[in-house]
Amino acid sequence: MNNTLLLHCSDSSLLAIDRLDAEAHAAAAAFVAAGTAANTVRSYRSALAYWAAWLQLRYGHTLEAGPLADTVVVQFILDHLARPEAGGWQYLLPPVLDAALVDVGVKAKLGALSYNTIRHRLAVLAKWHALKDWPSPTEATTVKTLLREARKAQTRQGVSVRKKSAAVREPLEAMLATCSDGVRGLRDRALLLLAWSGGGRRRSEVVGLQVGDVCQLDADTWLYALGITKTETEGVRREKPLRGPAAQALAAWLAAAPASTGPLFRRVYRGGRVGTAGLSCDQIARIVQRRAQLAGLDGDWSAHSLRSGFVSEAGRQGVPLGEVMAMTEHRSIHTVMGYFQAGSLLNSRATTLLTGADPVTGSSATKPLAGSHPMDSRHVAPTED
């Protein structure tokens, strides 16, 4: 039987047992691309374009030539991450190369990159090496040590990792109050409340929702279904509830812009005409920023403000962390805890030890600390350190 099978195979159709051919590589790459979120694909392409340009200018080297040495990655970090020196901030990238990177369109402006941007570029480089089955230089001890110490050095100089403002209840309500501008306001109100009350949805998840993904249970409750997301890649549908104002806002939007198929949130044109095209991730971010601006809110607002704000408010109201994560679908407790603790500590009695006031009601539960009043006879002058 084996001889019969071999008669049907020409020598050209036989594959090498120890490696994939070009067609198989292309097919595998297509699967990876199809299974990766569009935003992630765009960020990977942008980062790889930067690596390619920097390598060509700095070393005359290409990404395809082979795995990079850890010394190249160390040079990349030193070229782009500003360090405190002689009363200023220095980095090693020559100005002529900096200008060239801007000229070819892979860099937005001259100057150092942020720590987060560099970490992202290194993560993409590691992914590139993994896809090529090459050892990643980002795993080298020299690279990890440099990053850790660089982060400490920047922190000591007052450079902190920037986080978007969290839309807890008060700023969210201020944004919602601006949604009085006809059909556009109905859409934005429903979008903001679904993204926030529905578990702090990512903008990609909001964009991906279809009309068929929502159903009404009663006047005060809707369900919406999620499929593939950043952390759930199997595509198993999970239903999440929308209640109260969020359910009412969604009903009002669908009544104003009825549809049986297509994206749940669509573009609204001048005159209040609702189109058939869905919103993009960038448009979701702009809606949040526009509503924050109309509300006169200070801060740095983005679509992520809704996600972090939901978690912070849940912590503030004492919702168990397990219930919060069931809604948000965070996989990492470390990731969610930063926002959750920020909210829960707002109501902590540990923040009012001097006054003894209840952080929620403002009423005093204990006497003020002895010596807290300048005329208190028990006041003791502090000794010098």
Score class of each variant (00 low, 15 high):
residue 156 R to E: 15
residue 156 R to G: 13
residue 156 R to Q: 14
residue 157 Q to G: 14
residue 158 G to Q: 05
residue 158 G to Y: 02
residue 160 S to F: 05
residue 160 S to Y: 06
residue 163 K to G: 12
residue 163 K to M: 06
residue 163 K to C: 05
residue 164 K to R: 12
residue 164 K to G: 12
residue 164 K to S: 12
residue 165 S to W: 00
residue 165 S to N: 00
residue 165 S to Q: 00
residue 165 S to G: 00
residue 166 A to N: 01
residue 166 A to V: 05
residue 167 A to D: 02
residue 168 V to G: 07
residue 168 V to I: 09
residue 169 R to C: 06
residue 169 R to D: 14
residue 169 R to A: 15
residue 170 E to I: 04
residue 170 E to M: 01
residue 170 E to H: 01
residue 171 P to V: 07
residue 172 L to K: 00
residue 173 E to C: 11
residue 173 E to Q: 15
residue 174 A to F: 08
residue 174 A to V: 05
residue 174 A to Q: 06
residue 175 M to C: 12
residue 175 M to R: 01
residue 176 L to A: 11
residue 176 L to P: 09
residue 178 T to P: 01
residue 178 T to H: 03
residue 179 C to I: 11
residue 179 C to W: 13
residue 181 D to Y: 11
residue 181 D to T: 12
residue 181 D to F: 11
residue 182 G to Y: 10
residue 182 G to P: 05
residue 182 G to D: 09
residue 184 R to C: 12
residue 186 L to E: 13
residue 186 L to Y: 03
residue 187 R to E: 12
residue 187 R to S: 02
residue 187 R to F: 14
residue 188 D to V: 11
residue 189 R to G: 02
residue 189 R to I: 03
residue 189 R to P: 01
residue 189 R to Y: 05
residue 189 R to T: 06
residue 192 L to G: 00
residue 193 L to R: 01
residue 193 L to K: 00
residue 194 L to E: 03
residue 196 W to P: 00
residue 196 W to R: 01
residue 196 W to G: 00
residue 196 W to M: 02
residue 197 S to L: 05
residue 197 S to A: 15
residue 197 S to E: 10
residue 197 S to W: 07
residue 197 S to M: 10
residue 198 G to D: 00
residue 198 G to I: 07
residue 199 G to E: 07
residue 201 R to F: 02
residue 202 R to E: 03
residue 202 R to A: 03
residue 203 R to G: 06
residue 203 R to E: 11
residue 203 R to P: 05
residue 204 S to L: 07
residue 205 E to G: 04
residue 205 E to Y: 05
residue 206 V to C: 03
residue 206 V to T: 12
residue 207 V to I: 11
residue 207 V to C: 04
residue 208 G to E: 10
residue 208 G to A: 14
residue 208 G to I: 10
residue 209 L to C: 02
residue 209 L to P: 06
residue 212 G to V: 08
residue 212 G to R: 10
residue 212 G to H: 11
residue 212 G to E: 03
residue 213 D to W: 13
residue 214 V to C: 15
residue 214 V to P: 07
residue 215 C to G: 06
residue 215 C to H: 15
residue 216 Q to K: 14
residue 216 Q to C: 13
residue 217 L to D: 14
residue 217 L to T: 11
residue 219 A to N: 13
residue 219 A to S: 13
residue 220 D to N: 14
residue 222 W to P: 00
residue 224 Y to W: 15
residue 224 Y to N: 05
residue 226 L to S: 13
residue 226 L to D: 11
residue 227 G to S: 09
residue 227 G to R: 09
residue 228 I to R: 15
residue 228 I to E: 14
residue 230 K to Q: 09
residue 231 T to S: 15
residue 231 T to P: 04
residue 232 E to G: 07
residue 233 T to Y: 03
residue 233 T to A: 15
residue 234 E to H: 12
residue 235 G to M: 03
residue 236 V to W: 04
residue 236 V to Y: 06
residue 236 V to M: 09
residue 238 R to W: 11
residue 238 R to H: 15
residue 240 K to W: 10
residue 240 K to D: 04
residue 241 P to K: 12
residue 242 L to Q: 03
residue 242 L to A: 01
residue 243 R to H: 10
residue 243 R to P: 01
residue 244 G to P: 07
residue 244 G to Y: 11
residue 244 G to W: 12
residue 245 P to D: 13
residue 245 P to K: 09
residue 245 P to T: 12
residue 245 P to E: 15
residue 245 P to Y: 09
residue 246 A to H: 12
residue 247 A to F: 08
residue 247 A to W: 08
residue 247 A to M: 08
residue 248 Q to G: 08
residue 248 Q to Y: 08
residue 248 Q to D: 10
residue 248 Q to V: 10
residue 249 A to P: 10
residue 249 A to Y: 13
